[in-house]
Amino acid sequence: MIRAYLEVAKKSFQNNITYRMDYFAGVINTIVMIFVNISIWKAIYEEEEVVGGVQFKIIMAYLVLSFLLQNIFTMEDYLIEGRVTTGLISSDLLKPMSFRLYVFSYNIGSLVFKAVMQLLPAMIVTVALFGMLPPFSASMFIYFLISVVLGYLVLYNLNFIIWISSFWFYFTFSLVTIKDAAVMILSGALIPLWFMPQWLYEFIKLTPFDSIFFVPISIYLGQIPAEEVFTSIIKQVAWVAVLGLVGHILWKAATKKLVVQGG
């Protein structure tokens, strides 16, 4: 059974290879974004050596990590919508495999593609250009890896909720775009959350957003005290579960609705 899902992942990996221009665009976009943002922060730090107790090197490492993660966390936002609008969903549901696992495997396939084909070249170029801080410590690096996986799952479950809305809305482009905007601002993808106004930072900590990018990167940089790392990771697990549950309920409702409509 697992072989079928591996096949799906392989297929999606191969699909990614076919679009060569998109491939280069992905690499170059990442490098340009890192470059633009580092230039801006360089301009900020020209005036002050240390701001808010956080040195420029940490910011640079933060931004590099963030954009590299953003690159590999890009998912297939219109896979489910495509299935629903073409009606292929009804035959998908008949197949002797779980549709939700199919979608997940497909995304894992392109995750592997991006990690191998885009992350590596982008990482080599940016590390050569800007250098990179090593992880805070060996144990923090392990926690970082665990946290990255959880961050991916939080984002995946959040995305899944949006994707499922295609059962009710014909086009999900708008919802996906609004979701992306919220993630960009609130997850600390573009600006470390410790630079945000206190009230906003406190608010974000109550949402799943900081679990996506901010927590893993902060763990890597040692910006979360050792005793709080564990709670941060537990919080990520909790958000994976909560969002997963919401997704599950919506999925049940969606498939029921599909049956009512008669496929």
Partner: peptide, 15 residues
């Protein structure tokens, strides 16, 4: 749909 789309573009650009 179109109002939502215009709003989505607005949000994207506001980031």
């Amino acid at each position: 749909d179109r109002v939502l789309l215009a709003f989505a573009i607005f949000c994207r650009e506001m980031v």
